[in-house]
Simulated scan of single mutants.
Amino acid sequence: MRPFDDIDRIARTEALDRVAAPARDLVNRVLTNRKIADVLHGVPIGHPLHPALAQLSFGSFLSAGLLDILPRTRRPATALIGVGLLVAGPTAASGWADYSQAHEEQQRVGIVHAAANITMITGYVASLAARLRGRSTRGALLGWAALAAGSAGAVLGGHLSYHQSLGANHAEDYPHIGPEDWTDAGALADLPEGEPVARRAGEVNVVVVRRGDEVRALGQRCPHASAPLSDGDLADVDGDTCVECPWHGSVFRLDDGRVMRGPATAPAAVFPTRVRDGRLELRVATWPGVPAS
């Protein structure tokens, strides 16, 4: 049996939907401000926010646990627990924001991950209270118990990120497999006006939008969860023409693939375009965010 088979079984346990689905719906009812949601997803920094905060919070708790083993280090351990608890709030908020846009199997693992982290935070609150009352040994024991729960939660969080790809960039491979040379993508006259359509460039699929003689193209897969962007709608954001993901509402600027609205944090892959003899030609940009022409 592989070490993570038990976690895979969690992902297949439909009974967890009785808790996971209402939790998702509650987060979506509370988190209605898009600007706040984008910050919690990590859109402004171009990277998921939750893993970075989780490292800071859990790292503080882990360091406190190590200091509790050494003589005369209980006071700095107490300070580290305080830091971890302060960071735990925004860490949880960013995690719930990502959870609200996850698919069912991710949510099942996510709700168990959240339960482990809630147990950890409860234990560290009790540990801090005991330390502040001068009961340092009891505080250390509670801290180690909380650390054990948090370690289980960290394993589940790693599984979500690396095995189930929650928060990962699902379009990262485009610059590596897209055509580097100009590649024919069909007749310009066959493209409808102002409508996202799917085309193929070499070995990859792209979404193409024609507006008069101007053509813009992005990778077909949404970086957030691989949704087909050709099924999305065009949107105007701050005067820029964008395409909106049909699954979770991420919005990408056609000119350079920039994320204008999350939950996606990575830009869409850009394909510069040109028209020769009435034929559309594409090639992939080497770096994300390069203008399309």
Score class of each variant (00 low, 15 high):
M1R: 12
R2I: 03
P3W: 14
F4I: 12
E14L: 14
A15C: 10
A15L: 15
L16H: 13
D17G: 07
V19T: 14
A21T: 14
A23Q: 01
D25R: 15
L26M: 13
L26P: 06
V30K: 10
L31D: 06
N33A: 15
N33S: 14
R34T: 15
L40K: 07
V43F: 13
P44V: 00
H47W: 10
P48F: 08
P48Y: 01
H50F: 11
P51Y: 11
A52Q: 10
A52M: 13
L53G: 04
A54N: 12
F58M: 13
S60Q: 05
L62K: 03
I69T: 12
P71Y: 06
P71L: 03
R72C: 06
R75D: 11
R75M: 09
R75L: 11
R75I: 03
T78R: 15
A79T: 11
I81Y: 03
V83I: 15
L86V: 14
V87A: 12
A88C: 09
A93F: 09
A93C: 10
S94L: 03
S94T: 09
D98I: 05
Y99G: 08
Y99S: 08
Q101T: 12
Q101C: 00
Q107A: 10
I111S: 02
V112H: 02
T119I: 11
T122M: 10
G123L: 01
V125T: 11
S127V: 10
L128V: 08
R133F: 02
G139W: 04
A140L: 06
L142C: 01
L142G: 07
A146S: 14
A148F: 13
G153W: 02
L160Y: 02
S161L: 00
S161T: 14
G167W: 04
D173L: 13
H176K: 15
P179T: 07
D181M: 05
D181W: 00
D184A: 14
L188M: 12
L188A: 12
E193K: 11
E195D: 13
A198M: 12
R200V: 13
A201N: 02
V204Y: 02
N205D: 15
D213F: 00
E214I: 08
V215G: 03
L218H: 05
L218D: 06
L218R: 09
C222T: 08
S226H: 11
S226M: 08
P228D: 09
S230C: 14
L234I: 13
V243T: 10
W247G: 03
W247V: 11
W247F: 13
F252P: 07
F252C: 11
R253E: 04
D255N: 11
V259I: 09
R261E: 05
T265Q: 14
A266G: 00
P267F: 03
F271T: 01
P272L: 03
P272M: 09
P272T: 00
R274V: 02
R274M: 00
V275P: 08
R276D: 14
E281V: 01
L282N: 04
L282W: 02
P288I: 03
G289C: 06
G289Y: 05
V290A: 15
P291H: 00
